[in-house]
Write a protein that binds this DNA or RNA. Structure first.
Lengths: 206, 206
DNA sequence: AACGTCATGGTACGTTCGTATCACGAAACC
DNA sequence: GGTTTCGTGATACGAACGTACCATGACGTT
């Protein structure tokens, strides 16, 4: 073989170019030529590493979900040291809100992909079921721990509560992106809910 | 003027054709030719009544939001007779969940439009701020009434609670559309929340 | 040293899309 | 009753898109 280049690395480079340009102009507006230009390679190369646009999109979604999952769990881990379970719950939910650019891009593109998945039933069943389920499991576990530490209202069903909180966070995220609500307002709404669920009325929000 | 046709009527006909075909194949996949075929008219006519695709899309969104608003308020009104405020709250939230075809189409397309609105900041600022705000006002009012009738936990902030419930409903709706969650499961989550907010533990869900 | 294969560039092809143009019948107005 | 205006059809145009094809260095293998 000649230059023997690392295919995996090349693919993630291109996929991140896709994420960047799609985050700027919208997923519906990006073509392979845009991705190629953003990545600084020729159109032919994008075709070479991903044979078809559909495969590129699919890989981009996986990349997006993976990166965001790492971001959230990093924040939860960082919050794990100090004030207890509620801080971790808040870290998880707040990290999911589109307050900074990275999170905005994620929400924007993830929603775009979700819309595609509504018709192309086959497209990426995994990322839209497996990842949210994992998040729900993680949040459920955090709530259970809080419940065992007697910090939580005992008559909440941890699993149902986790599902509700995540759905609420997602819904608030969308309303932020479309300009209906400010990130601060969304934080207030979330915190109000947590205040009623947790026994201590302390707000630890940012 | 010759045949003097009712422009407004024609426009809504075409817009509903747009909604039908977009609901089937996805908003990203419909062109003016598809809309024309679905409406049973020529491409030229679609151009004639809407000069540009953007105007067609805009009118379609207004039409969509209007129809859905009527649907929800009709259901709330229908539930207003019998068992009290909670039934109306449930009616509002449940009507917004994508359980039937009409509601599924609405969620699907509304989300598609929301994605477009994230980049085309100008596109339809109204429908994505005015309508949700109106829904929030209505739900807030219902919650306040329940609170005055002493049916509600007195330490809930009606406005914040309304915002949270609507965001949760929207988030659950999306998770249904992507196949992560069943409508029944979403209903359970919503009802669990209402059970903790309302003083009576009665579930009046469908 | 020759060869085959990998990485890459350039470019062409066929399709589809939104929009514009030309044409024409019919009806209302003076 | 002629003229103007409205509703409608058919079709053409230019751009953009995804994909396919052809060519050509560069390098490891034999």
């Amino acid at each position: 073989m000649p230059k023997r280049v690392d295919h995996a690395e090349r693919r993630t480079d291109i996929a991140e170019a896709l994420i960047r340009v799609a985050g700027r102009r919208g997923l519906h507006a990006v073509g392979m030529r845009d991705v190629a230009a953003e990545a600084g390679v020729s159109l032919r190369l994008v075709q070479y590493y991903f044979q078809t646009k559909e495969k590129l999109l699919l890989f981009g979604l996986e990349q997006l979900a993976e990166r965001f999952g790492e971001r959230v769990s990093a924040r939860v881990r960082a919050a794990g040291d100090s004030p207890g379970p509620r801080a971790m719950v808040e870290a998880l939910l707040m990290a999911a809100l589109p307050a900074d650019d990275e999170s905005r891009t994620f929400h924007h593109l993830y929603t775009s992909y979700a819309v595609l998945a509504m018709t192309d039933r086959a497209l990426a069943a995994q990322p839209f079921i497996k990842n949210p389920d994992a998040a729900e499991d993680a949040l459920t576990e955090l709530l259970r721990q809080a419940q065992e530490a007697d910090l939580l209202d005992p008559d909440v069903d941890a699993r149902l509560e986790a599902a509700g909180l995540l759905a609420m966070s997602a819904g608030l995220g969308t309303s932020i992106l479309v300009g209906q609500r400010s990130p601060e307002s969304a934080t207030t709404v979330l915190d109000h809910h947590l205040n009623r669920i947790f026994r201590t009325g302390d707000a630890v929000l940012t």
